[in-house]
Nucleic acid binder design. Structure first.
Length: 344
DNA sequence: CAGGCGTGGGA
DNA sequence: TTCCCAAGCCT
Protein backbone atom coordinates (compact mmCIF):
# COMPACT_ATOMS: atom_id res chain seq x y z
CA UNK A 1 0.00 0.00 0.00
CA UNK A 2 2.83 2.41 0.81
CA UNK A 3 4.28 2.05 -2.67
CA UNK A 4 0.94 2.85 -4.31
CA UNK A 5 0.41 5.86 -2.07
CA UNK A 6 3.84 7.22 -2.93
CA UNK A 7 3.31 6.89 -6.66
CA UNK A 8 -0.19 8.35 -6.56
CA UNK A 9 0.84 11.34 -4.46
CA UNK A 10 3.99 12.11 -6.45
CA UNK A 11 1.98 11.88 -9.65
CA UNK A 12 -0.58 14.27 -8.23
CA UNK A 13 2.19 16.64 -7.15
CA UNK A 14 3.61 16.71 -10.69
CA UNK A 15 0.37 18.22 -11.91
CA UNK A 16 -0.85 20.14 -8.86
CA UNK A 17 2.16 21.46 -6.95
CA UNK A 18 1.50 24.96 -5.65
CA UNK A 19 3.47 27.64 -7.43
CA UNK A 20 5.31 29.23 -4.50
CA UNK A 21 8.04 31.85 -5.00
CA UNK A 22 10.72 29.84 -3.16
CA UNK A 23 10.12 26.77 -5.30
CA UNK A 24 11.69 25.92 -8.65
CA UNK A 25 9.66 24.72 -11.60
CA UNK A 26 8.94 21.07 -12.42
CA UNK A 27 11.07 21.15 -15.58
CA UNK A 28 14.16 22.27 -13.70
CA UNK A 29 13.46 19.74 -10.95
CA UNK A 30 13.24 16.96 -13.50
CA UNK A 31 16.66 17.99 -14.84
CA UNK A 32 18.10 17.49 -11.38
CA UNK A 33 18.27 21.15 -10.43
CA UNK A 34 17.72 21.75 -6.71
CA UNK A 35 16.71 24.99 -5.00
CA UNK A 36 19.29 27.04 -3.12
CA UNK A 37 19.22 26.49 0.62
CA UNK A 38 19.07 30.20 1.51
CA UNK A 39 15.62 30.96 0.06
CA UNK A 40 14.29 27.59 1.19
CA UNK A 41 15.59 28.03 4.73
CA UNK A 42 14.12 31.53 4.87
CA UNK A 43 10.73 30.25 3.73
CA UNK A 44 10.77 27.31 6.15
CA UNK A 45 11.53 29.52 9.15
CA UNK A 46 8.83 32.01 8.17
CA UNK A 47 6.34 29.20 7.61
CA UNK A 48 6.71 27.84 11.15
CA UNK A 49 3.16 28.14 12.53
CA UNK A 50 2.40 30.74 9.88
CA UNK A 51 0.23 30.65 6.77
CA UNK A 52 1.63 30.77 3.25
CA UNK A 53 -0.41 33.87 2.45
CA UNK A 54 1.09 35.76 5.39
CA UNK A 55 4.63 34.64 4.55
CA UNK A 56 4.87 35.48 0.84
CA UNK A 57 5.18 39.30 1.10
CA UNK A 58 7.70 38.98 3.95
CA UNK A 59 9.74 36.42 2.03
CA UNK A 60 9.83 38.70 -1.02
CA UNK A 61 10.89 41.70 1.04
CA UNK A 62 13.63 39.74 2.81
CA UNK A 63 15.09 38.24 -0.37
CA UNK A 64 15.01 41.62 -2.11
CA UNK A 65 16.66 43.40 0.80
CA UNK A 66 19.10 40.60 1.60
CA UNK A 67 19.65 38.46 -1.53
CA UNK A 68 22.19 36.16 0.12
CA UNK A 69 22.71 34.67 3.54
CA UNK A 70 25.87 36.73 3.88
CA UNK A 71 23.95 39.93 3.18
CA UNK A 72 21.46 38.96 5.86
CA UNK A 73 24.26 38.14 8.27
CA UNK A 74 25.66 41.63 7.81
CA UNK A 75 22.33 43.33 8.56
CA UNK A 76 21.70 45.33 11.72
CA UNK A 77 19.60 43.54 14.34
CA UNK A 78 17.09 46.39 14.38
CA UNK A 79 16.64 46.29 10.61
CA UNK A 80 15.80 42.59 10.70
CA UNK A 81 13.43 42.99 13.64
CA UNK A 82 11.70 45.84 11.80
CA UNK A 83 11.39 43.76 8.63
CA UNK A 84 9.92 40.91 10.68
CA UNK A 85 7.44 43.14 12.52
CA UNK A 86 3.90 41.82 12.17
CA UNK A 87 4.87 38.24 11.32
CA UNK A 88 4.89 37.07 14.95
CA UNK A 89 7.01 34.68 17.00
CA UNK A 90 9.90 37.11 17.13
CA UNK A 91 12.36 34.57 18.51
CA UNK A 92 12.41 33.28 14.95
CA UNK A 93 13.86 36.57 13.75
CA UNK A 94 16.57 36.54 16.40
CA UNK A 95 17.43 32.92 15.60
CA UNK A 96 17.31 33.66 11.88
CA UNK A 97 19.99 36.28 12.26
CA UNK A 98 22.09 34.09 14.57
CA UNK A 99 21.83 31.26 12.05
CA UNK A 100 22.74 33.52 9.12
CA UNK A 101 25.84 34.67 10.98
CA UNK A 102 26.94 31.10 11.70
CA UNK A 103 26.46 30.18 8.05
CA UNK A 104 28.31 33.31 6.94
CA UNK A 105 31.29 32.15 8.97
CA UNK A 106 31.27 28.98 6.87
CA UNK A 107 31.69 31.07 3.73
CA UNK A 108 27.95 31.34 3.34
CA UNK A 109 27.47 27.62 2.79
CA UNK A 110 24.70 25.84 4.61
CA UNK A 111 25.53 22.36 5.89
CA UNK A 112 24.12 19.69 3.59
CA UNK A 113 22.93 17.04 6.01
CA UNK A 114 19.94 16.91 8.31
CA UNK A 115 22.14 16.24 11.34
CA UNK A 116 24.35 19.28 10.76
CA UNK A 117 21.46 21.57 9.86
CA UNK A 118 19.79 20.56 13.12
CA UNK A 119 22.66 22.19 15.03
CA UNK A 120 21.89 25.68 13.75
CA UNK A 121 19.75 28.11 15.78
CA UNK A 122 16.08 28.14 14.85
CA UNK A 123 16.42 24.92 12.84
CA UNK A 124 14.61 22.14 14.65
CA UNK A 125 13.69 18.61 13.73
CA UNK A 126 11.17 19.54 11.07
CA UNK A 127 13.10 22.34 9.38
CA UNK A 128 16.36 20.39 9.25
CA UNK A 129 14.59 17.46 7.60
CA UNK A 130 12.74 19.69 5.15
CA UNK A 131 15.86 21.55 3.97
CA UNK A 132 17.88 18.33 3.72
CA UNK A 133 15.17 16.69 1.62
CA UNK A 134 14.31 19.67 -0.59
CA UNK A 135 17.81 21.02 -1.24
CA UNK A 136 20.05 17.99 -0.84
CA UNK A 137 17.90 14.96 -1.74
CA UNK A 138 18.32 13.41 1.66
CA UNK A 139 15.49 10.93 2.40
CA UNK A 140 14.84 12.62 5.74
CA UNK A 141 11.57 11.99 7.55
CA UNK A 142 9.76 15.31 7.34
CA UNK A 143 7.01 15.66 9.95
CA UNK A 144 5.00 18.82 10.37
CA UNK A 145 1.37 19.50 11.17
CA UNK A 146 0.29 18.58 7.65
CA UNK A 147 2.12 15.27 7.75
CA UNK A 148 0.62 14.45 11.14
CA UNK A 149 -2.86 15.17 9.84
CA UNK A 150 -2.42 13.23 6.59
CA UNK A 151 -0.83 10.19 8.23
CA UNK A 152 -3.29 10.12 11.13
CA UNK A 153 -6.06 9.90 8.54
CA UNK A 154 -4.33 7.57 6.11
CA UNK A 155 -3.66 5.08 8.91
CA UNK A 156 -6.72 5.97 11.05
CA UNK A 157 -4.63 6.74 14.12
CA UNK A 158 -7.18 7.62 16.81
CA UNK A 159 -4.71 8.39 19.61
CA UNK A 160 -4.89 12.12 20.41
CA UNK A 161 -2.01 14.52 19.88
CA UNK A 162 0.51 15.12 21.24
CA UNK A 163 0.71 11.52 22.51
CA UNK A 164 0.38 10.12 18.99
CA UNK A 165 3.52 11.89 17.75
CA UNK A 166 5.94 8.92 17.96
CA UNK A 167 3.51 6.63 16.17
CA UNK A 168 2.74 9.21 13.46
CA UNK A 169 6.46 9.68 12.92
CA UNK A 170 6.81 5.92 12.41
CA UNK A 171 4.01 6.00 9.87
CA UNK A 172 5.60 8.92 8.06
CA UNK A 173 8.94 7.10 8.03
CA UNK A 174 7.30 4.04 6.50
CA UNK A 175 6.26 6.21 3.54
CA UNK A 176 9.63 7.91 3.05
CA UNK A 177 12.08 6.53 0.48
CA UNK A 178 15.11 7.82 -1.45
CA UNK A 179 12.86 8.45 -4.45
CA UNK A 180 12.39 12.23 -4.87
CA UNK A 181 12.50 12.94 -1.14
CA UNK A 182 12.07 16.70 -1.51
CA UNK A 183 9.08 16.36 -3.81
CA UNK A 184 7.62 13.76 -1.49
CA UNK A 185 7.82 16.04 1.53
CA UNK A 186 6.28 18.94 -0.34
CA UNK A 187 3.63 16.72 -1.91
CA UNK A 188 2.35 15.61 1.50
CA UNK A 189 2.36 19.20 2.74
CA UNK A 190 0.53 20.45 -0.36
CA UNK A 191 -2.03 17.70 0.06
CA UNK A 192 -2.51 18.68 3.70
CA UNK A 193 -2.80 22.37 2.85
CA UNK A 194 -5.19 22.09 -0.08
CA UNK A 195 -7.17 18.81 0.15
CA UNK A 196 -6.56 16.98 3.43
CA UNK A 197 -7.44 20.13 5.38
CA UNK A 198 -8.27 20.27 9.10
CA UNK A 199 -11.99 20.85 8.57
CA UNK A 200 -14.09 19.32 5.81
CA UNK A 201 -11.32 17.64 3.81
CA UNK A 202 -11.97 17.35 0.06
CA UNK A 203 -11.82 13.56 -0.08
CA UNK A 204 -13.67 13.46 -3.39
CA UNK A 205 -10.66 14.84 -5.22
CA UNK A 206 -7.97 13.26 -3.05
CA UNK A 207 -5.37 11.29 -5.00
CA UNK A 208 -4.92 8.80 -2.14
CA UNK A 209 -8.54 8.44 -1.06
CA UNK A 210 -8.68 4.73 -1.95
CA UNK A 211 -5.97 3.95 0.61
CA UNK A 212 -7.28 6.18 3.39
CA UNK A 213 -8.39 4.19 6.45
CA UNK A 214 -10.09 7.17 8.09
CA UNK A 215 -12.15 7.79 4.99
CA UNK A 216 -13.19 4.14 4.93
CA UNK A 217 -14.35 4.47 8.54
CA UNK A 218 -15.97 7.86 7.89
CA UNK A 219 -13.95 9.54 10.66
CA UNK A 220 -11.60 11.70 8.56
CA UNK A 221 -12.96 14.98 9.91
CA UNK A 222 -12.39 13.84 13.51
CA UNK A 223 -8.67 13.18 12.98
CA UNK A 224 -6.16 13.94 14.23
CA UNK A 225 -7.70 13.82 17.70
CA UNK A 226 -6.31 16.43 20.06
CA UNK A 227 -6.00 16.74 23.81
CA UNK A 228 -8.31 19.41 25.30
CA UNK A 229 -6.85 22.89 25.74
CA UNK A 230 -6.64 25.07 28.80
CA UNK A 231 -8.47 28.37 29.20
CA UNK A 232 -6.43 31.52 28.58
CA UNK A 233 -6.08 33.91 31.54
CA UNK A 234 -6.60 37.66 31.18
CA UNK A 235 -3.69 40.02 31.88
CA UNK A 236 -3.70 43.80 32.01
CA UNK A 237 -1.18 46.51 31.26
CA UNK A 238 -0.80 50.26 30.79
CA UNK A 239 1.01 51.56 27.69
CA UNK A 240 2.42 55.08 27.69
CA UNK A 241 2.55 56.68 24.27
CA UNK A 242 4.37 60.00 24.41
CA UNK A 243 4.66 62.14 21.30
CA UNK A 244 7.14 64.96 21.15
CA UNK A 245 6.34 68.26 19.46
CA UNK A 246 8.59 67.26 16.53
CA UNK A 247 6.54 64.13 15.94
CA UNK A 248 8.92 61.60 17.52
CA UNK A 249 7.45 58.84 19.70
CA UNK A 250 8.98 57.51 22.90
CA UNK A 251 9.61 53.81 22.31
CA UNK A 252 11.54 51.16 24.14
CA UNK A 253 13.48 48.15 22.88
CA UNK A 254 12.09 45.16 24.76
CA UNK A 255 14.37 42.65 26.49
CA UNK A 256 15.77 40.07 24.07
CA UNK A 257 13.84 37.15 25.57
CA UNK A 258 10.24 36.75 26.58
CA UNK A 259 7.07 38.17 25.09
CA UNK A 260 7.76 40.22 21.94
CA UNK A 261 11.44 39.96 22.83
CA UNK A 262 13.78 42.21 20.89
CA UNK A 263 11.00 44.22 19.32
CA UNK A 264 10.28 47.92 19.57
CA UNK A 265 7.32 48.82 21.78
CA UNK A 266 5.74 51.32 24.16
CA UNK A 267 7.00 51.80 27.67
CA UNK A 268 4.62 49.61 29.66
CA UNK A 269 3.86 48.28 33.09
CA UNK A 270 4.43 44.60 33.61
CA UNK A 271 1.68 42.45 32.17
CA UNK A 272 -0.27 40.89 34.99
CA UNK A 273 -3.67 40.60 36.64
CA UNK A 274 -2.81 43.79 38.55
CA UNK A 275 -0.10 45.63 36.63
CA UNK A 276 2.48 47.77 38.41
CA UNK A 277 4.78 50.52 37.21
CA UNK A 278 4.83 54.22 36.42
CA UNK A 279 5.10 56.35 33.30
CA UNK A 280 8.46 56.95 31.59
CA UNK A 281 8.18 60.69 32.11
CA UNK A 282 5.99 63.25 33.86
CA UNK A 283 3.29 64.58 31.54
CA UNK A 284 -0.41 65.22 31.27
CA UNK A 285 -1.48 61.72 30.31
CA UNK A 286 -4.79 61.33 28.54
CA UNK A 287 -6.89 58.19 28.35
CA UNK A 288 -6.66 56.94 24.76
CA UNK A 289 -8.78 53.81 25.06
CA UNK A 290 -7.85 50.17 25.41
CA UNK A 291 -6.36 47.59 23.09
CA UNK A 292 -7.35 43.94 23.50
CA UNK A 293 -5.06 41.36 22.01
CA UNK A 294 -5.15 37.58 22.11
CA UNK A 295 -1.91 35.68 22.46
CA UNK A 296 -1.46 31.96 22.36
CA UNK A 297 -1.48 31.55 26.15
CA UNK A 298 -3.29 34.60 27.49
CA UNK A 299 -5.36 37.62 26.57
CA UNK A 300 -4.02 41.11 27.14
CA UNK A 301 -6.13 44.18 27.79
CA UNK A 302 -3.92 47.24 27.56
CA UNK A 303 -4.99 50.71 28.67
CA UNK A 304 -3.35 53.27 26.40
CA UNK A 305 -2.35 56.65 27.85
CA UNK A 306 -1.13 59.32 25.47
CA UNK A 307 0.64 62.65 26.00
CA UNK A 308 2.07 65.46 23.91
CA UNK A 309 5.38 66.73 25.29
CA UNK A 310 7.94 69.41 24.45
CA UNK A 311 11.13 68.84 22.48
CA UNK A 312 13.20 69.21 25.66
CA UNK A 313 11.40 66.42 27.55
CA UNK A 314 13.82 63.93 29.12
CA UNK A 315 12.38 60.47 29.72
CA UNK A 316 13.49 58.07 32.45
CA UNK A 317 13.59 55.24 29.94
CA UNK A 318 13.11 54.59 26.23
CA UNK A 319 14.29 56.47 23.18
CA UNK A 320 12.73 58.91 20.76
CA UNK A 321 11.95 57.44 17.35
CA UNK A 322 10.57 58.95 14.20
CA UNK A 323 8.86 55.57 14.08
CA UNK A 324 6.72 54.20 11.34
CA UNK A 325 3.94 51.87 12.48
CA UNK A 326 5.27 49.04 10.31
CA UNK A 327 8.25 48.65 12.63
CA UNK A 328 6.00 47.70 15.53
CA UNK A 329 4.45 44.36 16.44
CA UNK A 330 0.73 44.39 15.80
CA UNK A 331 -0.22 44.91 19.43
CA UNK A 332 1.86 48.09 19.67
CA UNK A 333 0.76 49.29 16.27
CA UNK A 334 -2.87 49.11 17.40
CA UNK A 335 -1.97 51.12 20.50
CA UNK A 336 -0.22 53.72 18.36
CA UNK A 337 -3.40 54.24 16.35
CA UNK A 338 -5.34 54.86 19.57
CA UNK A 339 -2.75 57.29 20.86
CA UNK A 340 -2.55 59.23 17.60
CA UNK A 341 -6.34 59.51 17.48
CA UNK A 342 -6.44 60.81 21.05
CA UNK A 343 -3.76 63.43 20.38
CA UNK A 344 -5.08 64.75 17.07
C1' DC B 1 8.76 18.17 28.59
C1' DA B 2 4.89 21.09 29.07
C1' DG B 3 4.53 25.56 28.44
C1' DG B 4 5.96 30.00 26.36
C1' DC B 5 5.88 32.34 22.23
C1' DG B 6 2.07 36.26 17.50
C1' DT B 7 -0.84 37.02 14.13
C1' DG B 8 -4.65 37.24 10.81
C1' DG B 9 -8.20 34.67 8.67
C1' DG B 10 -12.00 31.45 8.40
C1' DA B 11 -16.03 28.85 10.26
C1' DT C 1 -18.32 36.51 19.13
C1' DT C 2 -15.44 33.04 19.93
C1' DC C 3 -12.75 29.48 18.79
C1' DC C 4 -9.42 27.20 16.10
C1' DC C 5 -5.90 27.15 13.50
C1' DA C 6 -0.98 27.62 10.15
C1' DA C 7 5.32 24.16 7.09
C1' DG C 8 7.70 24.61 15.20
C1' DC C 9 11.48 25.86 18.19
C1' DC C 10 13.42 26.42 22.64
C1' DT C 11 13.90 25.64 27.50
Amino acid sequence: MCQEVREALLGWYDGHARDLPWRIGPAARARGVRPEPYPVWLSEVMLQQTTVAAVIPYWRRFTETWPTVEALAAAEDGAVMAAWAGLGYYARARNLLACAREVAMRDGRFPETEAELRELPGIGRYTAAAIAAICFDEPAVVVDGNVERVTSRLFAVRTPLPGARPLLREKAASLTTPVRPGDWAQAVMDLGATICTPRSPACAICPVMRWCEARKAGIQSDLPAKAPKKARPLKRAVFWAARRADGAWLLERRPPKGMLGGTLGWPTTNWAEKPEGGPPLAAEWREAGTVDHGFTHYLLSAEVRAAEVGVDAVPERGEWHQAVPSELPTLFRKAMERAAAALD
